[in-house]
């Protein structure tokens, strides 16, 4: 079965969605990603949707769910690279993804995660078993 690859970059996970998501693929991604966050103890998740031309309410809900779920696991999710047309459509649809962090591109998403998590990381620096 088709799967969307999840890359590990230090304490962050990066997912680049390159295909049109159908429901099952999106749900698989959700499960895989949450499992991966749990397994690796990642502190942040970057979801790059710059190649995605359509985000409907189902996809939007999945993104929101991923953000809430990772937050429970103490990781923040940043959705990066949303296309202008997709953003306008989502707003018109009534979906503002208020619980999700956003950034223009992966690089900025990464620095956003770093500033969000920065001080926190220093505090738990004593936990030497933190996955690195």
């Amino acid at each position: 079965m088709e799967k969307i690859p999840i890359l590990r970059m230090g304490s962050f996970l990066l997912v680049t969605i390159q295909v049109d998501l159908y429901d099952r693929l999106a749900l698989t991604l959700e499960t895989d990603l949450i499992n991966m966050v749990h397994k690796t103890g990642a502190r942040g998740v970057l979801i790059d949707i710059s190649a995605v031309s359509i985000v409907d309410s189902f996809m939007g809900r999945i993104l929101g769910n991923i953000a809430s779920m990772t937050r429970v696991l103490d990781a923040e999710t940043v959705v990066v690279g949303m296309q202008p047309a997709v953003a306008i459509t989502l707003i018109e649809l009534g979906l503002s993804l208020s619980g999700v962090y956003t950034a223009l591109d992966v690089e900025r998403g990464m620095s956003l995660l770093q500033t969000k998590l920065g001080p926190n990381d220093e505090l738990v620096d004593d936990d030497a078993d933190d996955t690195e």
Binding site: I54, A85, L93
Partner: peptide
């Protein structure tokens, strides 16, 4: 933009 709205 209209395309995206319609397809969505």
């Amino acid at each position: 933009v209209n395309q995206t709205k319609l397809i969505t």
